[in-house]
Simulated scan of single mutants.
Amino acid sequence: MPTTASTITRSPVDAINGLSPGDRRVLNENELAQRWGLSPKTLQRWRSEGRGPRYLKLSKRVSYPLESVIEFERGALHDSTSERAAR
């Protein structure tokens, strides 16, 4: 029987964390590049330089946990050219 949204059950952990079955908690390289208006090559370079958000590498697949992306974005906030935004 094919799985449909109505037949998918949520795990207790998902329910506690407020996740629904279709929620994706990671972005791939192309999705993050599009979100930030960058080239995927820039993200590749940043990884080799130790810059950018934390990422997962499973086999050859690179993905960025959304939580890490948001944390990185918050750390990059500035109030003015002379100081960073309060966290």
Rank of each mutant, 00 (worst) to 15 (best):
M1W: 07
M1K: 07
P2M: 03
P2Q: 01
T4Q: 01
S6E: 14
S6V: 11
T7P: 01
T7C: 02
T7R: 00
I8G: 07
I8D: 10
T9M: 10
T9S: 11
T9H: 06
R10Y: 03
R10G: 03
R10L: 12
S11T: 14
S11H: 06
V13I: 12
D14T: 06
D14P: 02
D14F: 06
I16G: 07
I16K: 09
I16C: 11
N17V: 10
N17T: 11
N17Y: 10
G18S: 06
L19V: 07
L19A: 08
S20A: 10
P21W: 09
P21M: 06
P21D: 09
G22F: 06
G22T: 09
G22D: 10
G22Y: 04
G22A: 11
D23Q: 09
R24I: 14
V26M: 08
N28C: 13
N30H: 11
N30L: 13
E31I: 02
E31N: 01
Q34Y: 09
R35A: 15
W36R: 09
W36G: 05
G37H: 08
G37T: 12
L38Y: 11
L38H: 08
S39T: 14
K41V: 11
K41T: 12
T42L: 13
T42N: 10
T42D: 07
L43N: 04
Q44N: 10
Q44V: 07
R45P: 04
W46S: 09
R47N: 04
R47K: 07
S48N: 07
S48V: 05
S48F: 03
E49L: 13
E49A: 11
E49M: 11
R51D: 09
P53S: 14
P53K: 09
R54I: 13
Y55H: 14
Y55I: 13
L56P: 08
L56E: 15
K57Q: 13
K57S: 11
L58Y: 06
K60Y: 14
K60C: 15
K60H: 15
R61Q: 15
V62S: 03
V62N: 03
V62H: 02
S63W: 03
S63K: 05
Y64L: 07
Y64N: 04
Y64G: 05
P65Q: 10
L66R: 07
E67I: 07
S68C: 10
V69W: 00
V69H: 00
I70G: 01
E71C: 01
E71F: 00
E71D: 08
E71L: 01
F72R: 00
R74M: 10
R74Y: 05
R74S: 06
G75H: 00
G75C: 02
A76S: 07
L77D: 04
L77Y: 03
S80D: 09
S82W: 01
S82D: 04
E83Y: 05
R84M: 06
R84N: 03
R84V: 04
A85N: 00
A85W: 00
R87W: 12
R87P: 08
